[in-house]
Design a protein around this nucleic acid. Structure first.
Lengths: 127, 127
DNA sequence: ATATACCTTAGAGTTAACTCCAAGTCAATA
DNA sequence: TATTGACTTGGAGTTAACTCTAAGGTATAT
């Protein structure tokens, strides 16, 4: 699979994929004799995984640590579990923030709506 | 209220508060005769609002737009509503990504757990 | 009065995560 | 065989959002 195909499949730019490989986020990407990347299933799985985690806001530094541990093999299972647990906890926090903010926006939007509909003509706006 | 008190109250650094004021995110912060900031309730409400939105990942550029509209008064209510609706939609997308990633991490953590507990001794790890 | 702790500014520096550029290689087609 | 288009690299540039620094003003306790 060429870089262009991977980029299309995972909706990511070639620059980003090359950057990820350069820093070590996508291990062992196969190459043709002439040096062109030829992504196999494992590379694709890495890209998909990285993309998912990055979409949720996980830091590259953390993902690098995970990849490093993964490459070391079974002896690092416990460490990887701890790492992922910690990251999950961070996502749960983020989830709470976002949920709260969405609720707050819903409340504000309802107020704005009432103002627009002409109810609350008296209403003094608050931030 | 001094900047130090505000920082403590909202768990934010003084540098960040000054930066927010400088770029126009916190309008009309009162000052003492000698030029020292003396935050009133309205300033505090702005800080709390900005902090909440930033925590959820809303961009400063967008918040600046909102503040600008707010200062223009009632004529901008419809525009502000649209802006907040759009931002809410972005947060809902983010929420979905995070929820999906948390679920994925839960699944991986369960697998890791089974490996650690000695079940799945045969198991070949996948990314 | 002086030391200390806190406040002020403009502007430079930092960090994460890309994103772009130039210069060159390679494969397929007219 | 020449052109076209996709690929390669190292390294520079960009962007958002702070974060820090230097140089100085202010308020209060001793």
């Amino acid at each position: 699979m060429t870089i262009a195909e991977v980029c299309k499949k995972y909706d990511i730019t070639a620059d980003t994929v090359r950057y990820y490989e350069k820093i070590g986020l996508i291990p062992d990407v196969p190459r043709t004799k002439s040096g062109i990347r030829d992504f196999d299933e494992t590379s694709c799985r890495w890209i998909e995984f990285i993309k998912c985690m990055r979409n949720a806001g996980m830091e590259i530094e953390i993902l690098l640590e995970y990849v490093k541990l993964f490459k070391k093999g079974k002896s690092t299972v416990q460490e990887r579990k701890s790492l992922l647990e910690e990251q999950k906890q961070k996502l749960v926090e983020k989830q709470k923030n976002i949920n709260a903010t969405i609720e707050r926006l819903d409340y504000k939007l309802e107020l704005y709506n009432e103002i627009i509909l002409g109810k609350r003509k008296d209403f003094t706006e608050t931030i």
